[in-house]
C-alpha cells in the first residue's frame, strides 16, 4: 500500500504559476487527474515522479520525499507522455534495459513477464521506432511495470490511442488498481476518466477544483446550467412548449441568429424533453448545439462554484 501526499504544493516558472497551493492524497486504487490542457496536470505528475522540485510545499511517497531521492523509484513506475524511448532498441531490448537499470535479480524473466502483461510479445523483436502510438504506449507501460511497482504514474496515457487499445489499457489499469496498487493517470477527457477512475481529482488553472467520487464530479459537471442553441421550424412554438417544463430555466428568441437560446437546469431531463416536445408539437429541429460545452467552460464553472 503506497500513498503519495501532495501537501500545500505550488510550482511557478518565472512569474507563471503552474500549480497553486494544491493539497491532495493519492492512495491505492485508480485515481484520475482531470483538467483541461495547461491546467498543471503534467507539472503535478512531474513533481510526483521526482522530475521537478516543488517551489513550495512537499511531495512525498509514504513519508519519503520524492525530489532528489532515487530510492523511491523502486516503488514508482512512470509512463511519461513523450514518446521517444531509444528508437534504435527493439521492444524487448528496451524493457530488458529498464529491468537491468532497476537492478532486478532476473531482468530477462521480468522483461518477459512485463511484455506479456501488456500483450506485446508479438512485436517485441521490432525496433520501437517502428511502433504505432498505441504500441509505444504499451511498451512504455511494460517498462514501468517491469519492477512490479506499488505506484504507477501515467501522463495522458490514452492520447492517440484507438478505441480498442484504449479499452485494453483501461482494463490493465483497472486490474492494477484492484490489486491494491496506487495508479494515477491524467486526462483532459471526462468520459475517459470516469470510465476508469473511482476517484477523481480535478485541476483547473493550477488550482485544485474538485475531488471525489466520479459520481460527485459528474453531478457537479452536469448540474450546472447548460446553454443550447436550437433552430427549428417554429422557434416560438417550441419555446412556449419548453418553458412549461421545469427543466428549462430560460429561453431567449435570438432574432439575429434566428434561433432559440435555451438555458437548461436539469441536463438529463432537458435532453430527453426537447425531442419529445418537438415531436408532439409537430416541430422539426434543425440545430441543437451546446453553446458552452468547451472543457474550459465546464471546468471554470467548477472552479467558481
Amino acid at each position: 500500500m503506497a500513498t503519495i501526499s501532495i501537501d500545500g504544493v505550488s510550482r511557478w516558472f518565472g512569474n507563471v504559476v503552474a500549480v497553486n497551493d494544491i493539497t491532495m492524497q493519492i492512495g491505492p486504487g485508480v485515481t484520475g487527474l482531470l483538467g483541461p490542457n495547461g491546467a498543471g496536470k503534467s507539472t503535478l505528475i512531474h513533481m510526483m515522479s521526482g522530475f521537478l522540485a516543488p517551489s513550495a510545499g512537499s511531495v512525498t511517497l509514504d513519508g519519503q520525499p520524492i525530489w532528489r531521492n532515487q530510492q523511491v523509484y523502486r516503488q514508482i513506475g512512470l509512463v511519461p507522455e513523450r514518446e521517444s524511448m531509444y528508437d534504435f532498441l527493439t521492444g524487448w531490448q528496451f524493457v530488458l534495459a529498464n529491468a537491468e537499470l532497476h537492478g532486478l535479480p532476473d531482468p530477462g524473466a521480468a522483461a518477459t513477464r512485463a511484455l506479456a502483461t501488456v500483450e506485446m510479445e508479438h512485436a517485441q523483436d521490432r525496433r520501437t521506432g517502428t511502433y504505432s502510438k498505441g504500441m509505444k504506449q504499451r511498451v512504455k507501460m511494460a517498462s514501468a511495470l517491469v519492477h512490479d511497482p506499488a505506484v504507477l504514474l501515467l501522463d495522458e496515457p490514452f492520447n492517440g490511442m484507438d478505441p480498442r487499445q484504449r479499452l485494453h489499457l483501461m482494463e490493465l489499469l483497472r486490474r492494477f488498481g484492484a490489486d491494491g496498487r496506487t495508479v494515477l493517470f491524467s486526462s483532459h477527457i471526462l468520459e475517459e476518466v470516469e470510465q476508469l477512475a473511482r476517484h477523481i481529482e480535478v485541476v483547473v488553472a493550477g488550482r485544485h477544483a474538485a475531488s471525489g467520487d466520479f459520481r460527485r464530479i459528474r453531478r457537479l459537471m452536469t448540474d450546472r446550467p447548460h446553454r443550447y442553441l436550437v433552430r427549428s421550424s417554429d422557434d416560438r412554438a417550441l419555446a412556449a412548449a419548453l418553458i412549461a417544463d421545469g427543466s428549462t430555466a430560460g429561453i431567449e428568441l435570438d432574432g439575429q441568429e434566428k434561433a432559440l437560446r435555451v438555458q437548461a437546469v436539469d441536463f438529463h431531463r432537458f435532453t430527453r424533453l426537447l425531442p419529445r416536445v418537438a415531436h408532439e408539437a409537430g416541430i422539426r429541429l434543425y440545430t441543437v448545439s451546446p453553446a458552452d460545452e468547451s472543457l474550459e467552460s465546464v471546468f471554470s464553472y467548477l472552479v467558481t462554484s
Binding site: 522530475f51 532515487q70 512512470l78 532497476h102
Partner: peptide, 15 residues
C-alpha cells in the same frame, strides 16, 4: 532533448 533520459533517471541508480 528527446526526454528518453527519463528511463535512465527513474531508476534507483546513483547519478
Amino acid at each position: 532533448d528527446d526526454g528518453s533520459i527519463v528511463y535512465l533517471l527513474a531508476k534507483p541508480q546513483p547519478r
